[in-house]
């Protein structure tokens, strides 16, 4: 019989090296994502005020959180903002994508124009829209200057309407991205099938409604996931546009968390609010990741 040598160092390295290379990143993620989530979770059950403290208080922070009027405002605002943002972006994005898909001359240029806001910082977007919507110098002042003196548009100063200005700016920034997602989806549809539909006698409208849009499901899904998680995470835009004001009128969970943790020295409550944000996002993302990755498993 042939000799059976022990695996050489090189053979062992071949198996080990890939895992070795992956491990620093895994360690970073394990510690700074999952470890930190665990730590924050613990803090949300602790009596932390200005600094982390480890006295266990059970669900007290959550109870306080849910009784706070500002949290109530923040959640309501997020609901209004999130729903409008997702619906308007999807609608606008789909409409623009379909319009752009009609063999438009200068399509490349138009696409570039629609999408560039996505390259900007939310702070820049916030500054631009903040002053454009400012009644003193922006749209309202311009209209007055142009002679329409009865024109009034002061949502950004209005407690009830300010949240909608955030929708306006956010839609401006992201709808181009949704358009691009849908456009890519449209371009992925088999053109022979569309020809077949035309031969079957379907008009443009019917082709889109019956054949094209139903096939954009994956694009809808990924647009939804991206928009939903951006809505929940949105912080910069609110800070730059209204800074949560007037008063607390445009507070959202992200600004709530920041102000309770770092300015009001209620770290336990801040941690609890971060926890709620995480759970909300997880509810959207985990099923999505699961369905995307499960065919890949081996």
């Amino acid at each position: 019989m042939a000799a059976h040598p022990a695996p050489s160092a090189r053979a062992r390295l071949r198996v080990l090296l890939p895992r070795l290379v992956l491990s620093p990143s895994l360690a970073l993620v394990a510690f700074f994502v999952y470890g930190f989530i665990a730590f924050t979770t613990y803090l949300s059950f602790s009596d932390s005020k200005m600094l982390p403290s480890y006295g266990w208080v059970g669900f007290q922070n959550y109870e306080t959180l849910f009784s706070l009027r500002m949290w109530d405002i923040a959640v309501t605002n997020l609901a209004i903002f999130g729903i409008l943002y997702i619906v308007i972006c999807s609608f606008l994005g789909l409409m623009l994508a379909i319009l752009l898909d009609q063999h438009i001359r200068a399509e490349g240029f138009i696409r570039t124009v629609y999408l560039y806001p996505m390259a900007l910082s939310f702070i820049v977007t916030g500054v631009a829209w903040k002053w454009f919507l400012d009644p003193g110098i922006g749209l309202e002042a311009v209209m007055h200057d142009w002679g329409w003196t009865s024109f009034e548009f002061r949502w950004i100063k209005d407690r009830d309407m300010a949240i909608y200005t955030i929708v306006i700016a956010a839609v401006w920034q992201t709808s181009g991205f949704v358009m691009a997602t849908f456009l890519a989806g449209l371009r992925g549809i088999d053109s022979e099938m569309l020809k077949a539909a035309r031969v079957d006698g379907a008009g443009t409208f019917a082709v889109y409604r019956r054949i094209v849009i139903p096939q954009l499901r994956p694009a809808f899904l990924s647009a939804f996931v991206v928009l939903a998680h951006m809505a929940i995470k949105s912080y910069d835009l609110v800070v730059a546009l209204t800074n949560g004001g007037p008063g607390n009128a445009t507070a959202v969970p992200s600004t709530f968390m920041y102000s309770y943790t770092f300015t009001r020295n209620q770290m336990g409550i801040g941690a609890a609010s971060a926890e709620i944000m995480l759970l909300t996002i997880a509810a959207v993302i985990i099923p999505y990741l699961w369905s995307e990755l499960k065919e890949d498993k081996r």
Binding site: F36, Y235, M277, L278, K297
Partner: peptide, 25 residues
């Protein structure tokens, strides 16, 4: 794949959840 999924989740977390411990770290 599971490890990758766990890494991927890091793309989506609201960073508010890591602010406090990161400041400490």
């Amino acid at each position: 794949t599971i490890l990758f999924g766990l890494m991927l989740f890091g793309c989506f977390i609201p960073f508010q959840i890591v602010l406090i411990p990161m400041a400490r770290s």
